[in-house]
Amino acid sequence: MTSELVDRALVEEATKKSGLIWVRGPGAASRALWHSWHEGAAYVVGDGPGEQPLPGLADGAGAEVTVRSKDKGGRLVSWAAAVTELEPGSQAWETAVGELKGKRLNAPDGEAMPERWRRECRVLRLTPTGVTAPLPDGSLAAPPLPTPATTREPVPAGLPRLLFKRRRSASR
C-alpha cells in the first residue's frame, strides 16, 4: 500500500512539473507532447492543423507515459495510462481546455483557439492506472523519427572572416 502511494505521488509531482511528457500509444513510436496536469490526469490536445500529432492514442486504449526531469532531462518515471477522448463542449472538455489554453505557446489564433480545438482537434485525458515501469538498466536511445527538416547547409565562405573580424575588434 505504501509503495502505491509513493508511486502515485511520484507520477503526479513529476508530471506536474515537467513541460513535456513522452507518450507511446499501441503500435506507435514515443512522441514528446506538451500537456497540462489537472485533477489526477494529464491532458493533451492535438491532431488538428498546427497542433501536435497524437499517433496511436485512441479512446479506450492504453498508453505508456514517460516523464523526464525538468532540470537534468533524465527519465524519472514511466507509467501506464488509460486514454479517454473528451466530448467537445462537455463540462470535462471545457475544464481541460481551460487548463490547456494557458499552456499553449505561440497559438496563431489567441482567444479563438478553444473554438478551433472544438472543431478540428482532439482533447485526451491520460489517467494513471497505478502501474509504473521499473527504470531500465541501459540506454533506450532510438534513432530520430523521419521528418521533412533538412540538415544544415555548408558554412558560407565569408562567415569565418566575419567571425574572426569580430573577435579581433572585441579584444582591442
Rank of each mutant, 00 (worst) to 15 (best):
K165M: 12
V123F: 04
K17A: 12
R168Q: 11
G46C: 04
G25R: 02
T150C: 05
W34D: 09
R104F: 15
P143N: 03
S139I: 00
Y43N: 00
E99A: 13
L140S: 10
V23Y: 02
R118P: 04
G98L: 01
G74W: 14
V11P: 05
T150D: 07
S90C: 00
A80T: 13
G56K: 08
G62C: 01
T84Q: 07
A41T: 04
E153K: 08
S3A: 12
P156I: 02
E4H: 14
D109E: 13
R125P: 11
P108V: 08
T129W: 07
S3G: 03
A170C: 00
L57G: 04
T66A: 15
L135I: 06
G62F: 03
L163S: 10
G48R: 02
L5G: 13
A80E: 15
R104H: 11
S78C: 00
E99V: 05
T2Y: 10
L135T: 03
P53Y: 11
T150A: 13
A92F: 07
H38L: 14
R166D: 11
G48N: 05
Q52N: 06
L163C: 12
W117G: 07
R172A: 13
W22F: 14
E4Q: 15
P114D: 04
T150Y: 05
V83T: 06
G46E: 08
Y43S: 05
A81M: 02
L126P: 11
E85N: 06
S139Y: 04
P143I: 05
